[in-house]
């Protein structure tokens, strides 16, 4: 298991944002993406997750090995915490709902409907979902939004456990998670030049 992305170019809305992005990730490694707003962190993560095609370059990891967590948590308001998690566990054909709830400190809220959770609790539930996917590579887009300090620490712990079990993670975040071993990639340096390979809007410029 290894993620090798070479010479990636990504576009949003037909406009090239990033080019020449190469990265390599082996089990146990974490990578933190940095860069100003709108520089293409989300776009890169969605490309790696297989949700949108890369304009150029190759990704070695098939989307089936990747768990993506975006700005929205994919929770159903009228389902309870346990029901939400078991659904994703069943979809991925995995067990471990109890462990995931315990890890994100959700056990006491197990039977509460998602609509009655606070923003931070929802976020914790969304992150607990990652644990029941059984995927080795986690792609996290601003995972710590609306989490308090204690929850950030919890989250740092589950990421560390995941890494210790042979997983890997790529995160777009500005908060220090205490993952000192994580490498940092600043996307500011990969901004695409205005003229990009043809095939997109640029063909018309």
């Amino acid at each position: 298991m290894e993620l090798v992305a070479s010479d990636l170019a990504c576009a949003r809305g037909g406009i090239a944002l990033l080019e020449g992005v190469s990265l390599r990730l082996t089990p146990g490694q974490a990578l933190i993406l940095r860069g100003p707003n709108g520089c293409g962190k989300t776009t890169l993560l969605r490309t790696l997750a297989g949700l949108q095609p890369a304009m150029a370059g190759t990704i070695s990891c098939p989307p089936e090995t990747v768990a993506y967590s975006g700005h929205a948590d994919g929770l159903k308001a009228v389902l309870s915490v346990r029901e939400n998690l078991s659904f994703w566990a069943q979809i991925h054909d995995r067990a471990g709902v109890g462990v995931a709830m315990a890890a994100m400190n959700l056990t006491e809220l197990a039977d509460r409907q998602a609509q009655n959770l606070s923003a931070g609790q929802k976020r914790r539930l969304g992150l607990a979902r990652l644990m029941v996917t059984g995927r080795w590579l986690w792609l996290l887009d601003e995972p710590t939004v609306s989490l308090d300090a204690a929850s950030v620490a919890l989250f740092g712990a589950i990421v560390r456990t995941h890494l210790a079990q042979g997983g890997a993670a790529i995160m777009a975040t500005h908060i220090d998670l205490g993952l000192n071993e994580a490498a940092v990639l600043d996307l500011g340096g990969f901004r695409a030049a205005p003229r990009a390979p043809d095939g997109f809007d640029e063909a018309f410029v």
Partner: peptide, 9 residues
């Protein structure tokens, strides 16, 4: 709510 992204992956 983002479920579709997750279902697609």
């Amino acid at each position: 709510d983002g479920s579709l992204d997750l279902l697609a992956t």
